[in-house]
Amino acid sequence: MRADGGAGVERRVRTRAPGEPRRVAYLYLAPALVFYLLFAFGPLVYTTWLSFFDWNGLTVGTWAGLDNYREVLEDEDIRASFVHSLVLIVFYSVIPVFLGLVLASLIAHGRVRGTTFFRAVLFLPQTIATVVVAIAWTWIYAPSGPLNEALDAVGLDSVSRGWLGDFTWALPALGLVGTWVMFGLCIVLFLAGIQKIPLSLYEAARVDGAGRFREFLAVTLPGLRGELAVALTLTTILALRTFDLIYVATSGGPGTTTTVPSVLVYQNAFANGRVGLAAAVAVVLTALIFVVAFAITKLVDRDPTT
């Protein structure tokens, strides 16, 4: 009887499973939510609203329906800007993540003297304001800058050029700056992740006769799944929305070779007086970022056991 009654009480109290959200949670969320709605969601919605207008930013706008979106899809320069962003993803995301993985797995368990020091140095670019990074690299890439002087000094005069003014090389040159900035973030993330992987797994792999490469595939890579997702998401988003580096270093030129969507947003909204079109580009860019971030999370950050 007693046991039965006890079970009855238990049932009444536990109307929801442990861990299930309760309404009071919204109260705790409220302060952050208000800020989010006011400063992130609100502007996003208003931008979307503006994207349906033909508006110069000053005088009364006229309803344009989906015209701006049609232009985003049809205009060659706008489409090209999205392609430039994809190129930047390779430099901002793919290369740093790959290099980061390789280097992190090499130094993680080895006894390299001064690891902390190198880690700090590699992470340093992350702590510098992008405008400063852009100015520093503009100087490095300048026609008479250190990079060209070094090339000239070793007899590679035919290779030296004004890198950021060159139609072929401006985008890769900017991309490499992104690699330089993002690499440190990746390696620090991965090093921290590897510390978490139990040494016993590595020992087991050794016992099973795995070489370093096999060990990397079987132990390190699966163990870093979470960090990999974070690194890929962060760097990809930064690649897609990059603006300050390009604005300072090339302003989207030469021609339109380094024009990315965010630069188009700026040019159209402020220089050309086409706020509606700028808003449409911004909305498409935001949607793209959502999709890419979502896809990365789905693909990479999935627990293989489920």
Binding site: T138, Y141, P143, G162, G165, D166, A170
Partner: peptide
């Protein structure tokens, strides 16, 4: 105008 497109770099 100088070498290549270097004028676009400043």
């Amino acid at each position: 105008l100088g070498k290549g497109d270097s004028f676009n770099a400043r």
